[in-house]
């Protein structure tokens, strides 16, 4: 490294990008695997029931399982389509 390199602006740090990406994906994968096995099936069946009455897409049902101490909360978020 010579004198000119010394004054060059610092390049973007790839390690911090790596850390950020890892934190996001690892958190997502942990949430997925810590959930009970029946979640995907429950999701499918809920969609089917809702579609008996309203046409919604796959993203309309969002499920989120949260743990607080001994208590587990299953949060369901169903987005209905906009009225014409």
């Amino acid at each position: 490294m010579g004198i000119f390199d010394y004054f060059r602006s610092t390049p973007p740090k790839s390690a911090s990008v790596a850390k950020e990406r890892l934190q996001i994906i690892v958190a997502r994968e942990r949430a997925h695997r810590s959930g009970p096995d029946y979640l995907p099936a429950l999701h499918r069946e809920l969609l089917a029931v809702i579609r008996k009455y309203v046409q919604v897409d796959d993203q309309a049902v969002q499920m989120n399982l949260e743990r607080e101490g001994d208590c587990e909360v299953l949060e369901l978020n169903i987005t209905l389509p906009d009225k014409d």
Binding site: K13, S14, A15, A18, L22, Q23, V26
Partner: peptide
């Protein structure tokens, strides 16, 4: 490489 910001540090990996 860690010091240059090109490699995850021990602390980074332990954090994750």
């Amino acid at each position: 490489r860690v010091q240059k910001g090109e490699m995850l540090s021990i602390e980074d990996v332990q954090d994750i």
